[in-house]
């Protein structure tokens, strides 16, 4: 069952088309990964799905509802939350204020404190630092905060834009453990990565994007068998 279906999306910055007709689908309850080099359009796609950028044409269907061109607040309200590239926590707000900001659109304000408590259970480091400015956290802690902030919206689909970017290998493993954990708990995840090795350990399905177009669509096994991908993304010797 595809929970997110993207059909022929074109997004442009001025005259330059960053996405030249992208189509893909994300299966419910699975981890789908989008791989691709710098400048391929990965972040543009994430921002288009989350309503921060407007596509020129194409359809984005989430649970059957059309989200293409809808503002970010509608998309978040429908249950799609983005963990942005480079984390983008609110640096001069405390950890707890960041979490509250994530629950901004929630109608059930009464349940927010218990959700914050369960975030702290998952990430004890964040509880230790709850009164601290988010800008003073380490990169890994900021990534955990960014993920937690997105979770505060109780998303059905979590979009993650390069969560491993600029983090130490041990922290990256931590992050991917969390990705798998969230998925086991029932959250569908659409992940953008450049770290193909890590992604291979968690993702159920792969897409490869190059120059604004999807050039590969397949299972992890199929990906490992593809000679071109092997050479370019997995770096194994031929």
């Amino acid at each position: 069952m595809a929970v997110l279906e993207i059909n022929d999306i074109v997004t442009a910055y001025g005259k330059i088309e960053a996405l030249k007709g992208v189509s893909l689908s994300v299966a419910e309850g699975k981890i789908t990964c989008l791989l691709g080099p710098n400048g391929a359009g990965k972040t543009t796609l994430m921002m288009t799905i989350s309503g921060i950028l407007k596509p020129q044409r194409g359809a984005i269907r989430f649970n059957g509802q059309d989200l293409a061109g809808k503002p970010a607040r509608t998309v978040v309200g429908q249950g799609v939350a983005l963990v942005p590239e480079n984390r983008l926590v609110f640096p001069e707000m405390t950890v707890e204020e960041n979490l509250k900001a994530g629950a901004y659109l929630r109608r059930d304000a009464g349940k927010v404190p218990s959700d914050i408590a369960s975030v702290y259970e998952r990430f004890p480091r964040l509880q230790e630092r709850r009164e601290q400015y988010a800008g003073t956290l380490s990169g890994g802690e900021q990534q955990m905060l960014a993920i937690s902030r997105a979770l505060m919206a109780r998303p059905k689909l979590l979009l993650m834009d390069e969560p491993s970017l600029g983090l130490a290998p041990l922290i990256v493993e931590d992050i991917f453990r969390i990705v798998r954990e969230l998925n086991n708990e029932g959250t569908t995840i659409f992940l953008v990565e450049q770290n193909a090795h890590m992604a291979l350990q968690v993702a159920h399905h792969f897409y490869l994007i190059e120059q604004g177009k999807i050039v590969f669509d397949g299972s992890p096994d199929e990906m490992e068998e593809d000679e071109v991908i092997k050479r370019a993304y997995l770096g194994s010797k031929v």
Binding site: S50, G51, I52, A72, R73, V75, V76, G77, A81, L82, V83, P84, L88, V89, F90, P91, E92, M93, E97, K100, A101, G102, Y104, L105, R149, A150, M152, A153
Partner: peptide, 17 residues
């Protein structure tokens, strides 16, 4: 909190809706 969030990071503010 909303005004401050916008002041700190517009993209992040949008991403929380």
């Amino acid at each position: 909190a909303v005004l401050r969030a916008v002041g700190e990071d517009e993209l992040a503010a949008q991403s929380v809706g």
